[in-house]
Write a protein that binds this DNA or RNA. Structure first.
Lengths: 148, 148
DNA sequence: ACAAATAAGTTGCAAATCAAAACCCACCCT
DNA sequence: AGGGTGGGTTTTGATTTGCAACTTATTTGT
């Protein structure tokens, strides 16, 4: 198998962000995740939707399966054609996608008419994220610091 | 200039996530951002902290400067030595870092004693993110859907 | 039932990107 | 003036990526 995305350095990762980026840190993986979460669950649909090379898509899907972010199941018992579906670990990435969308919406100079959004499926209205402490009190951005 | 991280396809990006990943979607960029936000603002300190190649670090810093995520300023007027500092656009990435940290903490099987965290600088306690609608009401993960 | 079309990859190869180390120049210190 | 250090650039080789063609299943149309 080629194109492993696993960490090349065997030393322990010191940082959760580093750990996350070992799996997610490339140009395609989070877009695959987005499409899987949108319900795009077939190889060719993913490939067409993303404009990704087929071999790279194969690698990414395989990495995502290995890390438990999606599952591969045959379209019908014993079939070779596969459906790719999100796991809870994949759903748990939705907050990451929301923060990325929010950041782009606020700071990108490319003003697009059609952004992708995450919405409350009940009300169809977009959601956002709030930074809160353990008591759910909101904390302003400027009051945060990063500990290593 | 080599190693551009800008999108190779001139067609408009259809998606905010795609837009964000054009800048942030590689193994190092968000780690550089993390370190800059931690106050690591010199080239050699960044290089040593991250274990990144010097030429790649140069590229990443240059990309981050071009996209307005950090500024480069001389240590003293007219000096060649530079300090790298976060802009508001960089601070705005903190929620992305928080969601990545949360995701790793909850789903990584590597149990590390020392994770990096984002904390409330007043109380020194870690913060997290809540998904909310426009009225700040929390929305459960399962109730979300992604619109394209 | 059979041919044509489509789905889901795999393979081979060229191009781009990344990484390690050596090199370079400006500054600082004494 | 000379040595050390900070901040990169260059060179060279290893990886990764992307494109296109190829293969094998599975459908679909007639």
């Amino acid at each position: 198998m080629t194109g492993q995305l696993t960490s090349s350095t065997p030393k322990t990762t010191h940082c959760a962000i580093e750990e996350a980026l070992t799996v997610l840190g490339d140009r395609w993986t989070l877009l695959v995740v987005r499409d899987i979460l949108r319900g795009v669950n077939r190889f060719d649909l993913l490939q067409e939707s993303l404009g990704i090379s087929r071999n790279i898509l194969t690698q990414r899907l395989s990495n995502l399966e290995e890390t438990g972010i999606l599952t591969k199941s045959p379209v019908k018992p014993n079939a070779k054609r596969m459906l790719y579906n999100p796991t809870p670990k994949c759903m748990a990435l939705i907050p990451v996608l929301i923060t990325l969308i929010d950041w782009s919406s606020n700071w990108s100079n490319a003003k697009e008419t059609q952004w992708s959004r995450v919405v409350d499926s009940k009300t169809k209205k977009p959601v956002t994220v709030a930074i809160v402490n353990q008591d759910q009190d909101p904390i302003p951005l400027g009051q945060l610091s990063i500990e290593f």
